[in-house]
């Protein structure tokens, strides 16, 4: 049982502020992904939770216990590092058993737990090998097995898949999700890869410039981004934006078309995901610029009033560069953002 609470945590390096006043609660056995571009503070936050970095201010609680003054070994955590950090002078067996030996567990208990986690990660054939004799993917498995063998309350992962090639990463993603779901631990997973975040997380915390912009389920983050940054960061291709002017009574003019929106007078931004557009008789008129057939569908990059606008259309459509096409947004998928605050206006 381990709820993680992060209360008013901030971190400064000299004049540079890496984290501003972070507040986050992660439920017991939840899989939380910290997602953001490099330099957004996600790794710093993870290292503060692990105890490898000390927060400038604020508190960290794990399982109802304040831990921010404790050494990493006393926090009930295990960590998987980006470069695996498999000890090169020990065999795979001794690597996985390292933490158990430090706890002075009896030999047969160590053997039992090492063999169980090695079996779970499918590396039971490699127990006698050294790290130098393993591939990147196998080292990754050793690193995860070593963390799991500790049977920790919390498992922390810092971009664990980013050094693997694309195919292996996809395989490991599914496997890791399955293994962690069975282990009943709370997991915090740092990544810059939105596909990893979307596919693995119970909840995603999107981080930007040392702040958590939105913490919600993957679908919520995708469908209802709390800010323009999230809308632009998540989704490939990202959301489309167009300036909108109020016509009064909740009516908004967007590129010469009228849409229903929030009832206010200050200008807003109209936003729609590329896959929520359909070719129609009436809608936004766009000039096609680049057509990319992707097999399953057609990615059309167009221009509306000088703004880049992308649409994902059926691959049977015939569109040529220079064509004028009319695109109708699905009304319930339209989102509005305040250009002043960049936050969602609903």
């Amino acid at each position: 049982m381990a709820v993680i609470e992060i209360k008013n945590v901030a971190k400064t390096f000299g004049a540079y502020t890496a984290l501003h006043d972070i507040n986050l609660t992660i439920a017991d056995q939840e899989f939380m992904v910290l997602l953001g571009a490099s330099g957004c503070g996600k790794t710093t936050l993870l290292r503060i939770i692990a105890g490898l970095e000390t927060a400038s201010t604020g508190e960290v609680w794990i399982g109802g216990r304040r831990v921010d003054h404790l050494a990493p070994k006393d926090r009930g955590i295990a960590m998987v590092f980006q470069n695996y950090a498999v000890f090169p002078h020990l065999t795979v067996f001794e690597n996985i058993g390292f933490g158990l030996r430090m706890q002075k567990l009896p030999n047969d208990e160590v053997r039992r737990r090492v063999e169980r986690t090695a079996g779970l990660m499918q590396i039971d054939q490699l127990l006698k090998r050294y790290s130098g004799e393993l591939s990147g993917g196998q080292r990754q498995r050793v690193a995860v097995a070593r963390a799991l063998a500790m049977e920790p309350d919390v498992i922390l992962m810092d971009e664990p898949l980013s050094n693997l090639d694309a195919l292996l990463r996809m395989e490991m993603r599914a496997e890791l999700k399955g293994v962690l779901a069975e282990s009943n631990t709370t997991a915090i997973y740092v990544t810059h890869d939105q596909v990893e975040a979307m596919s693995m997380a119970d909840r995603i915390s999107v981080m930007h410039k040392g702040e958590i912009v939105q913490a919600a389920t993957p679908l919520e983050v995708y469908r209802n981004p709390a800010a323009e940054f999230v809308a632009g960061f998540i989704g490939n291709p990202p959301m489309n934006f167009l300036p909108a002017t109020s016509q009064g009574g909740g009516k908004w003019a967007v590129a010469g078309e009228l849409f229903d929106g929030p009832d206010r007078s200050a200008p807003l931004k109209f936003a729609i995901r590329p896959e929520d557009l359909r070719p129609a008789e009436q809608g936004l008129t766009a000039t096609a610029k680049v057509i990319e057939p992707l097999g399953a569908h057609l990615l059309v990059t167009c221009e509306i009033d000088g703004e880049i606008f992308r649409a994902i259309l059926d691959s049977d459509m015939t569109v040529r560069p220079g064509d004028r096409i009319t695109l109708a947004p699905q009304p319930d998928r339209i989102r509005w953002f305040d250009p002043e605050t960049t936050l969602s206006a609903v």
Binding site: G51, P72, K73, A78, M79, G99, M102
Partner: peptide, 9 residues
Amino acid sequence: EAAWTLGCT
């Protein structure tokens, strides 16, 4: 760091 998280001082 890995050793620290695995119970080492």
